[in-house]
Design a protein around this nucleic acid. Structure first.
Lengths: 155, 155
DNA sequence: AGATCGTGGTTTCAAATTAAAACCATATTA
DNA sequence: TAATATGGTTTTAATTTGAAACCACGATCT
């Protein structure tokens, strides 16, 4: 489970989150959780994955603080799996994935599910990256910079 | 390679993109590509993954139109791997992942690499989801809706 | 009470995937 | 000519996955 996803000792800002999420299944579980699914059986039915795998993924998500278990709300002696704050923080990522999918995996007129504003039922806006001053940024307009190294740290 | 990631016949708006990307390694390759890496050896050195795996992942990314091979720009008889438009469309996803990582994987004062505006060297803004009218939306403020079904389609 | 069913798992085991290492091909360098 | 660098492929063992069987527990039916 603690598979090393990078050879560097400390995982970078992309690899560390990836490592925590676990794998594709986990992301689909999280999506289902955003859709309101909470029970083991619900996830299994929705995703059609083996129970042992689901079990392992849920355990991993809980271990990483992305989901949490709570006693079932309907009186049954089971537990439910809900997103923590950390888990809910993944919403933009799912939106980005969905929007990318809309852009490149469907014909312009092909019907597909859409994410809409609950209040107005209008599609949500595209995610866009902006500078502090509000300018839109493309990938080429950005750089990744290392933190200033503290005294005594030399590479 | 064509691993079924969902039991549904047509993969949904989240699963289909995931399926195309392939796996975590692919996402790290894509990140490196955004950082300017282009050569097989560069990716391998950066990621430290086995050559056969890198080979397979690159092949998959090319097959899915996320990367493309071009003749090496330096006269050597090799090829380089570059992001297509489709591949570049993944930038927001990487930003979302990075910002989530910043939020939950580093202490508030822990130094970490940052994505900055190349022009001003200021950190970029957070990605935020907005409605058509500009209101910020949280996950709970949205719903996924199915497309209207064409005549003759009944579930 | 006893049998059966639904839910939520774990265990087992075969099959698929991954990863390390060895190998290979080509071109450049010494 | 030999050695080395790049960019892979092949081989093989170890790991992971996934399907199915099994198990535990409580509720329900007879």
């Amino acid at each position: 489970m603690a598979k090393r996803v990078s050879h560097k000792d400390s995982l970078c800002g992309i690899a560390r989150p990836l490592d925590a999420i676990g794998d594709w299944w986990s992301l689909l579980i999280i999506r289902d959780a955003f859709d309101g699914l909470r029970r083991f059986g619900e996830f299994q039915k929705s995703l059609g994955l083996a129970k042992n795998i689901l079990s392992a993924r849920l355990r991993n998500l809980v271990a990483h603080g992305i989901m949490d278990t709570v006693p079932a709300s309907d009186g049954t002696p089971y537990q439910e799996y809900v997103l923590t704050q950390k888990g809910q923080g993944l919403f933009p990522l799912l939106v980005a994935l969905r929007q990318w999918g809309e852009d490149f995996f469907f014909e312009p007129d092909e019907p597909h599910v859409m994410l809409v504003d609950r209040a107005t039922h209008m599609p949500v806006r595209r995610l866009e990256l902006r500078a502090q001053d509000g300018r839109m940024l493309m990938a080429e307009d950005t750089v990744v910079v290392a933190p200033p190294l503290a005294a005594g740290e030399r590479e």
